[in-house]
């Protein structure tokens, strides 16, 4: 399964919105509730889903979902 598809339900769960569809270009500015707490919940959920660990602030530095996916790919090796 590609990473974007795996991220889809994580985003829907964090933002409590079953209709939410993300793309590589999605940024925090596109989702009203995407604040620092949502970011932390995304980090924890992504770590659990992919069995990886982010350093503090590492995922926060990505500017859109596409960059997030690249970072996940890099972490998975």
């Amino acid at each position: 399964m590609d990473i974007l598809k795996e991220l889809q339900p994580i985003f829907q769960d964090v933002f409590d919105d079953e209709t939410l569809v993300i793309t590589d270009e999605t940024t925090a500015a596109d989702i009203e509730d995407w604040d620092s707490l949502a970011q932390i919940r995304l980090v924890v959920a992504i770590e659990k889903q992919f069995g990886i660990k982010f350093a503090f602030g590492e995922l926060q530095n990505t500017s859109n979902v596409g960059e997030m996916i690249k970072l996940i790919q890099k972490k998975r090796g």
């Binding site: 620092s36 707490l37 932390i40 919940r41 980090v43 924890v44 770590e47 659990k48 503090f56």
Partner: peptide, 14 residues
């Protein structure tokens, strides 16, 4: 304080 709060939030959700 905000940084410390974020650390604890991360611990809590994990």
């Amino acid at each position: 304080f905000l940084d410390e709060t974020e650390k604890e939030e991360r611990y809590f959700y994990s």
